[in-house]
Every structure is written in C-alpha cells, then in structure tokens.
Design a protein around this nucleic acid. Structure first.
Lengths: 219, 219
DNA sequence: CAGGATCCTTAGCGATACTG
DNA sequence: CAGTATCGCTAAGGATCCTG
C-alpha cells in the first residue's frame, strides 16, 4: 500500500517533497540516472531497502510521472526508466551529492552502488584537455560501462565499448578507493581485488583525472 | 529523541539524505533561508509539524552543522539560523522548488508560509531592467520585509525599509494568488484581504515583474 | 508566552517468508 | 525474477503538560 501523506503546503519545495521525500525515493532516482534498471538490479544496488518498500516507491514514482515501466531492452523482462520529468532531477541530485560529500565527519564504512561510483567519477573527473582521447571499459557488479575521456570531458555510457584501451573489473567500493588513492592501483592488481586488461596507463589516466587537483577551482 | 537512521551508503546523495532526508528537515531549512527564525515562528510557518518533531529536527540539523542557535536578534529569546553549510543548500532548494512547481496536477488547496511566497517572488520576478528602481514594503504574518526592484533584479530582505514607495499587507496565500493574477488587486483591496498604503502603481510593478513573461526563456 | 518535554496512537518502515 | 503477504518496530502525528 503506497504512501499517501502530504505536507499540505503549496510551496514548490514542499510539493516536490510530497513526491520525492519518502524514504528511498531519491536513491531510486539516482540508480536510474545512468541506465534503466530492473527490479532485481535495484535491489542489488540498494541492499537495505526491503522489497515491498521498493515496490511501493516504484509505484509512487511511476504514479507521479518520475519513472515509467520500460518494455525491457533485452531479456524479456521489464525495466524502470526515468521520464523526462525524472531526468530533470539530475542536476539537483548532482548538487545534493556535492553537498553531501563535503561532510565534516569522515564517512563510516558503507556500501556503494555502481551507479554511485560512476556518477561521482563523471562529476569529479577533470581530464587534461590537451591529452589525446582514450576509452576505457569498466565492469562493475557484472555490468559493462564505457568511459570516454576526451577534450577535458568525461562520458559514461552503459554497455560495452566498440573498442577500448583497457578494461577494469572491480567492486564499486574498490574502484572508489582507487579513485581516492590512485597509487594503490598496483597493490590492488596484485591482490586480485582489481583486474585490469589492456593498457594500464589508460587506467592510470582515468584515475588521475579524478584525483588531480591541477584544474581545481570547481569550474 | 532524535532520529538516527542511515542509508549506510557512501554516495554523497545518500549521505546528504542522512542529514536532510527526515521528514520536515528541508522545510525547516527553507524557512531559515531568508532570515533567522524562532521556534514559535517556525511553528506558525509549518503548522502541521508537531512541536516535539520540530524540536527533534532542530537538534539534528544543529548537530549536523546545518543550523545553529543564534543569540537572538532582539527580544531576549534565541533564534535558529543557517550555518555556512546550511546556506549552501539554497540553490538546491531553489532548483527543487522549480521542479515541484511544474507538477502535472493542479495544486490542492494548501497553506503557504511567508518565506515560501517570498522565495517564489524572488526567484520568479523578472523586473524590467529599463524601469527605475522601486522599493516596496511587504507585511506578511506580522513581519515586515523590504523588496527592492532595480536593474532587472529583485532583492528581498527582512525588516523595515528605510523608505518605500508602497506597503502591502496580506496573508501569504493571498499574495500568492495576487502574483498569479495581478488583475485581482483591485478586488482584493476592495474586499479588505489586501491592504495597500502608498503608490499603488509600485505594487502593480512588483506583481507584474512576476507575472509578465516578457523576459521569459528561463534565463 | 516562548520553548520545549511527555504521553499515546497511527502509519510508514524493515525484515522475513511466501507466491505466480 | 518480480514482486506480495505478514508482522514487529520505530518514527511521525497530535494533544497535553511542564518550566523559565
């Protein structure tokens, strides 16, 4: 039985929260920012949400026109994707994530979904505009992603790249640690927590694009 | 007893929601965007929040460094104000409000706080850059505000203006209706729901700055 | 009266088990 | 795989009562 409580406030903020303010709602939207996802994929990305609650949130978000059921890209089953209205939440969630990252206290040990890491990667990476383009393949939670570095910009797309200089497979949390400390790449490869195929220097460039503050200044 | 549950997710969005995701938290921040407020003022602005819950939220937001207790501007009692970190939520709340306003369904009858109306006014007004500056005084819920129109921009500040072309007193909801339909000003004055003192045309200019789409295009 | 604290009820949440 | 059913728990909602 879906939630139906309202702030009874005409303000736009309150009306937005009537739709997005229930628990887990915005994290469901976050998971759909990069690619449509199926019910079970959402459960893996958000392991602490119970199935009935996830079903409730999906119903509510669909009812409010934030997401819709998509006719399944492949495999027969359906998936959930953002509507145009839902996609307009992307800059808001990006800003909210930036705000949350600069928290005073260090983050306690916690999980991280593939989407979270990729969103952070895309938002934080500042690749050298002068460097030649490079394409990497990332494999997170069993799904392949294409990451393009070109002209000082980063593009993250779901699916296999047509061609890539290198491929990296790791747990999302491990990749996140790697982004924070690129020098640990060699150790991570050695102990098997990260598997790299192809040109290791391409991976180094990807990690350095996030870590290096050479182009900092928030712009 | 303050709420302490976490999404246990290292993503910045989830960590932001650990602080701001509990019910009423973001609406409390909204109320503090324009001016520090006292406990009782927050209760009037958010009539549907119970006093214990409001006290809980204030404690939590203070603990997370979003608000702080201010030594009371006047009157002896204390007030709550945003910290620097809390003030950085302003653009996010603005964007969220814009998103919430363009909802598909018409808004059901609901209340509106003075802050809500003023935030909307400030965000939506597009005064003619060529017109001469004008200062209006607004009195909402017993508190005076100074609204300046100049150079195509609107400034909203708490407190009495040094000098003003006109003063308008009304319920926040009435002012909101007036912003949506400036032509009803005469009727509203006639039936007493709006009290205007001074130059009526200054008020008309204020209302027209919000209603007129002459400078639309969202920029 | 401002600024809460206390109590009680209800509804949303979390976890587990179950079904088409 | 994609949900539904059930149930104990906890936060939200509402009223009342305290304290300076």
């Amino acid at each position: 039985m879906p939630t139906s409580r309202s702030y009874r406030d005409s303000c736009g903020i309150a009306r937005a929260l009537d739709v997005l303010g229930e628990r887990w709602a915005l994290l469901v939207v976050r998971e759909l920012l990069l690619v449509p996802q199926r019910f079970s994929e959402l459960r893996r990305a958000l392991p602490h949400v119970s199935s009935n609650l996830l079903a409730d949130r999906l119903r509510e978000l669909e009812h409010h026109g934030v997401i819709r059921r998509a006719p399944a890209p492949a495999g027969g089953a359906q998936a959930y994707e953002l509507t145009e209205r839902g996609r307009r939440l992307e800059p808001i969630l990006g800003a909210l994530g930036d705000w949350g990252i600069e928290a005073p206290q260090p983050p306690p040990p916690a999980a991280l979904s593939a989407t979270s890491v990729l969103l952070f990667l895309r938002g934080a990476a500042r690749p050298d505009p002068a460097a030649p383009p490079v394409t990497c393949r990332l494999e997170l939670d069993g799904r392949a992603w294409t990451v393009d570095l070109a002209d000082g910009r980063v593009q993250v797309a779901p699916g296999e790249p047509a061609t890539a200089a290198a491929s990296l497979r790791a747990e999302p949390t491990t990749l996140s640690a790697l982004l924070a400390d690129p020098d640990s790449l060699a150790d991570a490869c050695a102990d098997g927590s990260v598997a790299v195929v192809g040109d290791l220097s391409a991976i180094r460039r990807l990690l350095a694009a996030v870590a290096d503050p050479w182009s900092s200044g928030d712009q």
